[in-house]
């Protein structure tokens, strides 16, 4: 991919107007994350860097220079000072590029909506000097952009999404397991998908990610018509990830479909909540900037867990 192509893709997906507003809010991990640099975010490693974390009893073998002599004068005990180190985080973006993400009714393709969100988040994160990686998947890992905190990574993510050819079905279990293997350091995993596939496999994949101590956020993209099913008349529904067809008078199935969708969404919400996974519904009729702004603000407000 030429640099020029990557640049045009970035122009397509990076909406600077929205991103500028979102940058002001920023993105912070809710959990502690592992980083390789000193940064804005708390690291799980206690040491002797910036932020005082507490005292502990001196044991033989500790370096004497870390003894807090002021505390010794006060308590007549050898206590060692402890500090929390601050570090940068890695945002792992997992973007579904299966065929179902090409669904389009009135509010554009889901994959484009996912791309806008992913690129915006990538930009915000790298602006914070945090690192971003991205994985495009369907029934396999289609593409992977290695982590980086340069602007280049945003450009590469944009180009990868633009060049992706959504034609395969989704296989969550395989893909999320593989992605978890690749990620290594724990960070924030953000999944952008319509979640039409084997949900049990999806839950298994989430468990694998959680096992690696990642903070997981699921952005569930759905077109309003997929929820409301407010179609009237005879329709031939062509399966996006298969070859099946269903011909029905859509209006006669409104209630049955809505009942099924409600069950499906309720199940998703319940299971993710149970696992401690953040579930964000992304309606396609809403501007992605608004969705993200609301999400980030909420995240900032509720803070670290």
């Amino acid at each position: 991919m030429s640099r020029h192509q990557a640049g045009s893709a970035l122009c397509r997906y990076l909406d600077l107007e929205h991103v500028a507003a979102l940058s002001a809010i920023g993105m912070k991990p809710r959990k502690v994350v592992e980083g390789c640099l000193s940064g804005n975010h708390r690291s799980p490693f206690h040491g002797f860097a910036v932020e005082f974390a507490g005292h502990r009893q001196y044991v033989p073998g500790d370096e004497i220079k870390h003894i807090d002599w002021k505390a010794y004068y006060k308590s007549n005990r050898y206590l060692l000072k402890q500090y929390s180190t601050e570090t940068n985080f890695i945002a792992h973006l997992l973007i579904d590029v299966s065929e179902s993400m090409t669904f389009e009714y009135r509010h554009g393709r889901k994959i484009d909506h996912a791309a806008f969100m992913a690129v915006a988040l990538a930009f915000i994160v790298q602006e914070q000097s945090d690192m971003v990686s991205a994985t495009l998947f369907s029934n396999r890992i289609v593409d992977h952009i290695r982590r980086s905190n340069t602007e280049e990574v945003v450009r590469r993510i944009s180009a990868a999404i633009e060049n992706a050819e959504p034609k395969d079905p989704t296989a969550f279990r395989t893909v999320l397991n593989q992605a978890a293997e690749q990620m290594g350091r724990r960070g924030i995993v953000m999944i952008f998908s319509d979640l039409f596939g084997d949900l049990d496999a999806f839950y298994d994949g989430l468990k694998r990610l959680l096992y690696s101590q990642h903070e997981v956020v699921v952005f569930h993209l759905m077109d309003p018509v997929e929820i409301e099913f407010d179609l009237t008349g005879e329709f031939v529904f062509d399966e996006l990830e298969g070859r099946d067809k269903i011909t029905i008078p859509a209006h006669r199935f409104h209630d049955a479909y809505r009942e099924e969708v409600a069950e499906y969404l309720e199940g998703l919400k319940r299971e993710t909540q149970k696992m401690g996974v953040e579930y964000v519904r992304v309606p396609l009729n809403e501007n992605f900037g608004s969705t993200l702004a609301r999400y980030l603000s909420e995240r900032t407000r509720t803070g670290t867990r």
Partner: peptide, 26 residues
């Protein structure tokens, strides 16, 4: 033949289940 509109549908599994639920009645 009535005029039918084609729509490529992502939530096909949901639609299939709705169809099973309501087809006989319809």
């Amino acid at each position: 033949k009535r005029k039918k509109r084609h729509l490529r549908w992502a939530a096909f599994e949901i639609l299939r289940r709705a169809l099973q639920r309501r087809r006989k009645r319809v």
